[in-house]
């Protein structure tokens, strides 16, 4: 639930946006980031459907990798939302 997921913004209709991670698209809120600071192609950390901060692409990949390791180990136990 508290996990931050890095996603790439693919469409913006501020404050609504569509973001993508590992081929999955999701509606994301940009309410917590100023409109002028965010553009299509940017990477963001998403918590419960809201982008909380912008990150550079390299870091997004690193976070995704460690998240995949962690969640691979979760083995379906406990339903993190």
């Amino acid at each position: 639930m508290c996990l931050g997921v890095p996603m790439r913004i693919v469409e913006i209709n501020y404050p609504a946006a569509t973001a993508e991670a590992s081929g999955v698209r999701r509606e994301v809120g940009l309410h917590l980031l100023p409109e002028e600071e965010i553009a299509v192609g940017d990477h963001v950390i998403v918590h419960v459907g809201f982008a909380i901060e912008k990150v550079e692409e390299g870091l997004a990949d690193e976070i995704r990798r460690s998240l995949n390791e962690a969640m691979g180990a979760a083995d379906g136990e406990g339903s993190g939302a």
């Binding site: 639930m1 508290c2 931050g4 404050p15 809120g29 309410h31 917590l32 918590h47 419960v48 459907g49 809201f50 909380i52």
Partner: peptide, 17 residues
């Protein structure tokens, strides 16, 4: 609605919208 600051801010944002 539960959580630390990372879920509180989204909860506030949804109220604002």
């Amino acid at each position: 609605s539960i959580g630390f600051e990372t879920t509180t801010a989204p909860a506030a944002a949804v109220l604002e919208s």
